[in-house]
Design a protein around this nucleic acid. Structure first.
Lengths: 339, 339
DNA sequence: ACCGTTCGTCGAATCGATTCGACGAACCAT
DNA sequence: ATGGTTCGTCGAATCGATTCGACGAACGGT
């Protein structure tokens, strides 16, 4: 293992000089600098992360807390992990993936052991114990998604404006001529957990219904396939039949499309389908119009927020970013049959 | 920040004694041990990771190299990341997510800086430069998926037996009475990259066709939606029409199902559909029979292999795990119409 | 020629945990 | 009582990089 001493010896200088060349924190003559650089290159030297961290009290690592209900996996979590990894790297941080189902223990360990400098928390629940634990340690934190009720001293967060997202989808459908709209909301268990996106999406649908005067029939999704089919059939066979279907819970989408076809309805002709909160690429192949979940922008914001908290430890928790939704066209138009 | 000295002072012992209580590497009297434990508990002490790593030359961290073609995201990568994180934690390791598109640079840095003790590489390509770089540093490595041609001195790897997986699907279909089978293979770009799973899946289909005497028509998938639709239509409208469709490239599955419905075919009645290599839950809602990609078992094996390499640095690269496929029933039977 | 700067580099202390050798106390055998 | 063990604990060295104070050389001003 090649250390800073080896580099120093090889370049004929003191270890401290090598360190100054690396950090640029003191002036070093051009001559010495090139000699040191050459030695570093030649020996393939990389500073030992642990030694640097020990001395600087900074690890240049972020931890991403991915929620784990054992056996359950949400595709969106993996997607966020990858994108947040990209963003962290852009800012010079590495990313530690924390999949501990009991997030508090793992995060406490990481915080107190100095393994990471800050945390990004996903799938934040109401009164999330992880937030309290990290705040108690004064550990810089940013949240992806926010709870139902955000108090003033919560960590900074970023989220899609879910109410606006669903509302946008409704208003677009209305603008295209639809009058009877079906909304396939988040799943039962998401409402039970009082997840912010579920509650806000529903609120957005109701608000848009009031504002536009359109009829919006709501049905919650479920993870139980047969039950999901039954609910969809009920939703789509109501008289008069809805001409547009807005889908927020995308997990059973293939099943929904299958059932729509089984009912003899053609997507885009008899029934307009709009996805809300889809990943940028998952529905790409389907070419359905959609309000995308801007994973990249959210990842960028989350990393920026936590890095700012790391670098300005004084600053009180304040920032929040509510991202405005945008509709992506795709496939057949949203126009209702005969409209 | 509470250090080992604080704990020692609080318990009235020397720092070294605290360390021995923690590691158990020397005998400590019951009395002292409980006193130290109490002090640790009371002060909320966690050993500083950097100090421990510096001294022990072990970080207890694994790095997962996720392949990144910028802008492209494969759901399976995120899934593996989460599962490998779980498995690493079970063995006492944390997981660092390395999303550097140029894997070599990032991995070299992690290896030489001692940030991690070992690496798991995903989406290994033929003659992958990352493998060579890590071997040059003597860095313990395990692969998820293996290239077309595995040489004797490759790092240990784990993979699903893709040839057997597709072959199994074919033979099950034949056993159920199908004689004309369509195989929706991996996508064009996967064949061009000579990905092992693409090549082996195809080989499995051909072998099974020979063995069973059934007619297996093969079509490669593509990421271009319109083209994919066209190829599927061509595949399914051939005369005589195939009665079973085996799908290995699952990305456009919603699109395929949509198109099948558009052709007026009912899945499970006019056309049996079997998925090969699906994630355990992604197709759950659809209840189609499938040969699952055993992500959990593969993650377990990958972590086990790299940890073994870390703990027995002498042992030459040798292990490989080829996982036998299993068919999971689901939904309607595979029987052909009128069969 | 002398004194005060400035410049570039060095030496040593430091971060916090681990680990080896040593040391005192207690114990046993003679 | 003495010498040899065993047991439990301690002190100090160590891992490798950073950073502060200091120091010698070069330089400019008078």
């Amino acid at each position: 293992m090649v250390t800073i001493k080896d580099v120093a010896r090889h370049a004929g200088v003191a270890p401290s000089t090598v360190s100054y060349v690396l950090s640029g924190s003191r002036k070093i003559s051009e001559e010495t600098r090139t000699a040191v650089r050459a030695a570093i290159e030649e020996l393939g030297y990389h500073p030992r992360a642990s030694a640097r961290t020990l001395r600087r009290a900074r690890s240049e690592v972020l931890v991403l807390a991915v929620p784990r209900e054992p056996g359950k996996y949400r595709a969106v979590d993996g997607r966020f992990a990858i994108d947040i990894g990209d963003m962290a790297r852009d800012r010079g941080y590495d990313l530690l993936l924390m999949t501990d189902p009991d997030g508090v223990r793992g995060l406490t360990r990481v915080a107190r052991s100095g393994l990471a400098d800050g945390a990004v928390l996903m799938a934040v629940r109401e009164r999330d114990p992880r937030i309290e634990a990290l705040r108690a340690h004064g550990f810089p934190t940013a949240l992806v998604g926010h709870g139902e009720e955000s108090e003033g001293d919560d960590p900074p967060w970023v989220d899609l404006d879910w109410a606006a997202a669903v509302s946008l989808a409704v208003r677009e459908a209305v603008a295209a001529g639809h009058r009877r709209i079906a909304f396939w909301a988040s799943a039962d268990h998401e409402f039970e957990a009082r997840n912010g996106y579920a509650l806000r999406g529903l609120a957005g649908a109701e608000a848009a219904a009031r504002e536009t005067g359109a009829e919006v029939r709501v049905r919650r999704s479920t993870v139980e396939p047969d039950e999901a089919r039954a609910r969809l059939v009920e939703l789509l066979t109501a008289r008069p039949r809805p001409t547009a279907l807005l889908v927020q819970h995308l997990i059973p989408l293939p099943l929904l499309l299958e059932e729509i076809a089984a009912l003899g309805l053609r997507v885009g002709e008899d029934l307009a389908v709009v996805l809300v909160g889809s990943l940028p690429d998952e529905a790409g192949a389907l070419r359905l119009p959609r309000v995308e979940l801007p994973v990249g922008r959210m990842a960028e914001a989350a990393v920026r927020l936590v890095v700012e908290a790391i670098e300005n430890p004084e600053r009180p928790y304040a920032e929040r970013e509510l991202i405005a939704p945008t509709l992506v066209a795709g496939g057949p138009p949203i126009v209702p049959p005969g409209g």
